[in-house]
Write a protein that binds this DNA or RNA. Structure first.
Length: 713
DNA sequence: GGGACCTGCCCGT
DNA sequence: TTCCAACGGGCAGGTCCC
């Protein structure tokens, strides 16, 4: 407690000391930086901004987590601690048996890679403080700039404040990829199965080369670094150790242009990790460092072993195992497996947009880009995740798992719109009235600016464009035969400029390709062929202009129906490709010239000539005079939010029941039923969540780290 | 009870 | 003057279904 008081006293005098967002001393080349000065400047430039407010929220949440864990810790009895100590000791013995000192691993890390490449291409930058990136974000900074506290992941405007002479160079990933390929050719000579961790990092198993040539790991590292320099003109740093984890730590020790060798000897490893700060270990970031330090006073890897009983008591088994293995200096020693991509995504940050139509246009663009990227890699996925970052930097994700694998922009947009739309009624509810659930909901204001992204995951088994879907054979066949993306990875079109990227295809597909910086100048959409854009629209029989016009109409409709209750109507909207689509009350039906009221009565006027089904005759649920149900006359004032929702659910269930009994639903495909069901489930879930959250408002939020522990008690 | 799914968070480059 | 990215992997808890 004394410690807390003194910290808080310091905080009030020097508030920046507790603001760690953009500054850490973990980066190489920043050891002599005036930490306090940098922290003060970063703090002053950030203070009052939305970003700052969000950081404060996150900080407060983290402190609460720490406090909760302390409480849990204090509750441990001597018997509990004994119990967990036995578990920990057994675990340590078990982990010790897995120690493998037979391999020699080399981790290579290029020095300030992007900045070094730029300097190589423009020697006039040599010796000057320089950063690659923009005013909004810096990708990397050279060592001259780092002396001022400028570092990667720092916004450019703050960097310029720290170093007014700082030169900004825009990112050029084509260049970096070229030089990365050169380094990989060298890596291949030492380990044909090397693991590329990113454009500028790689792990090599040099055991064989050491044995074959009778060289030590250090000698091989020297030679490799020299080869890299000869081949590229760039310097790199290397770490030699018995496993991945330690090799990575070692490569950072003598940066730049240096190396560090940790012998394959247990004592040497244990001595090394005994004083190793936990933050140096890959996988332990800012949050975990704070938790371990503030709750358990663990600052070095050795501390992990000393507090092993507490770690086993308060963390999940996976986390505890990881911490203990770090304390023992263990890490992966196996040859890297060819890993398949797990997901593919894109996201864009944009300035404030008041117009919801433009927000949806962003979604259209993202869907098209994602579809193009998936087609390029021959991927079809089932789980679509929408990510939103509000103008206050709050991040939300919403996911849906589709009944079929897809890569079509039309499907992505359809389901992405559904996910996005699902957030909007909540926000619209905020416009008129304030509820106790406000903090959980998006407001129109916050949603209308920030960041939007789409991620597709849960790929089909082949991952090569051959769709696998036991449930929807017809659609699978359609995707394979009717989709230009149905080619295998090796079947890239001759015009594909990326087909020389053989190394990354074979070994590593997950590193960031940094499209965010190139898209502005080169343009991803432009680079990814207009025909693909045409493809998605052509599935609907629409050109791009028509698509946009329809989208605008959908948005107009949404805006027109703000005052209607969030309810669902059912209609079958025949599609050109033969698949029917369930049109929901709030799912932006395509043709909306008629008023919302009229559409409720006849929603399938889709212009394709097909008559609507009987379900179109349903009347909408409206709150007449804002309190009386138009269907049954029940009176519920606007403040009865949940009651109104339940009332709506009642009518909806009634309607579905009628449909079921009248056989209407028999005409609906499984997918449509699922969509409808999902919608209901989602609504129910959201309300449950809100309810739970509201009822727990007065309680301390539960931290996921210790929920499991509390169950253990 | 186990698995699938959704959501949020953490971490890395 | 400018005002905090774009990915991708993984873990964990809650909820629901079988």
């Amino acid at each position: 407690m004394e410690n807390e008081k003194s910290v808080s006293g310091t905080d009030s005098a020097r508030p920046w000391q507790s603001y760690h967002t953009a500054y850490t001393n973990a980066k190489a080349g920043m050891e002599k930086v005036d930490k306090e000065k940098v922290q003060r400047i970063v703090y002053e430039m950030s203070k009052g901004s939305k970003y700052f407010e969000n950081e404060e929220k996150k900080e407060a949440y983290m402190k609460q987590k720490i406090e909760n864990m302390r409480v849990q810790c204090a509750k441990l009895t001597a018997a509990d601690i004994n119990h967990y100590q036995k578990i920990a000791d057994n675990k340590i013995v078990e982990l010790e048996t897995t120690r493998d000192l037979s391999r020699i691993w080399l981790h290579v890390d290029m020095d300030a890679f992007y900045a070094a490449v730029e300097t190589l291409c423009n020697p006039s930058l040599k010796g000057k403080p320089m950063a690659v990136g923009s005013m909004s974000m810096i990708s990397t900074a050279n060592y001259e700039a780092r002396k001022f506290g400028v570092r990667a992941a720092m916004p450019g405007f703050i960097a310029r404040k720290l170093c007014p002479e700082l030169i900004f160079v825009p990112t050029d990933f084509k260049k970096y990829t070229h030089y990365s390929d050169l380094t990989r050719k060298v890596f291949m000579q030492y380990d044909p199965n090397f693991l590329a961790a990113s454009l500028d990092e790689a792990y090599l198993d040099i055991t064989s080369i050491c044995n074959e040539r009778g060289m030590t790991g250090g000698e091989v590292a020297e030679e490799l670094r020299e080869s890299i320099h000869e081949e590229t003109g760039l310097t790199c740093s290397a770490g030699v150790a018995p496993n991945h984890l330690l090799a990575k730590v070692c490569s950072d020790i003598n940066k730049p242009n240096g190396q560090f060798v940790l012998p394959n000897d247990r004592m040497a490893v244990m001595t090394f990790v005994s004083s190793l700060p936990i933050r140096k270990v890959g996988g332990i970031g800012k949050v975990t460092e704070h938790v371990l330090k503030d709750v358990f006073e663990i600052t070095t890897c050795e501390g992990m072993l000393q507090k092993s009983s507490f770690l086993c008591a308060l963390f999940s088994r996976t986390s505890a195992d990881f911490f203990l293995s770090v304390g023992l200096g263990l890490g992966r020693t196996d040859a890297p497996q060819a890993t398949l991509r797990k997901s593919i995504s894109n996201e864009r940050t944009f300035s404030a947009i008041k117009d919801e139509a433009l927000l949806y246009q962003k979604l259209v663009d993202l869907a098209e880009m994602l579809s193009n990227d998936m087609k390029k890699e021959g991927l079809c996925g089932r789980t679509l995740t929408l990510k939103l970052k509000t103008s206050s930097f709050e991040v939300r994700t919403r996911a849906v798992t589709l009944p079929t694998y897809t890569c079509s922009s039309e499907d992505i947009l359809k389901h992405g719109s559904k996910l996005l739309k699902a957030e909007l009624p909540a926000s619209l509810r905020l416009m008129g009235k304030t509820t106790k659930y406000d903090s959980l909901l998006f407001s129109v204001e916050t949603l209308s600016s920030g960041q939007c992204g789409l991620r597709m995951s849960h790929f089909n088994e082949g991952q090569n464009g051959v769709s696998f879907d036991p449930k929807q054979k017809t659609l699978s066949e359609f995707i394979v035969t009717g989709d230009a993306s149905g080619r295998k990875l090796g079947d890239r079109a001759p015009s594909d400029s990326n087909n020389d990227d053989t190394l990354s295809v074979d070994r590593e597909t997950s590193f960031s390709i940094g499209t965010h910086d190139t898209c502005d100048s080169i343009g991803l959409l432009g680079a990814h062929e207009t025909p693909d854009l045409h493809h998605s629209d052509s599935m609907l029989g629409l050109n791009k202009e028509e698509t946009k016009r329809n989208l605008d109409l959908r948005i107009d409709d949404l805006q027109n129906s703000v005052y209607e209750h969030n309810t669902v109507t059912n209609a079958i909207n025949p599609r050109p490709n033969g698949a029917s689509q369930l049109v929901e009350r709030d799912s932006f039906p395509g043709q909306l010239e008629e008023s919302s009221q009229d559409r409720w009565k006849n929603t399938t006027n889709s212009g394709d000539g097909e008559a609507g089904s009987s379900v179109n005759q349903y009347r909408p649920l409206l709150w007449m005079n804002d309190y009386k149900c138009s269907l049954c006359g029940a009176e519920l004032p606007p403040s009865f939010v949940e009651e109104r929702q339940e009332h709506f659910d009642f009518h909806l269930a009634e309607r579905l029941q009628e449909e079921e009994s009248s056989g209407v639903n028999q005409n609906l495909k499984l997918e449509q039923r699922l969509i409808r069901k999902d919608h209901l489930m989602s609504q129910t879930r959201q309300r449950k969540k809100h309810k739970t959250s509201a009822s727990q408002d007065q309680y301390i939020p539960i931290d996921m780290f210790f929920v499991k522990t509390s169950q253990n008690f």
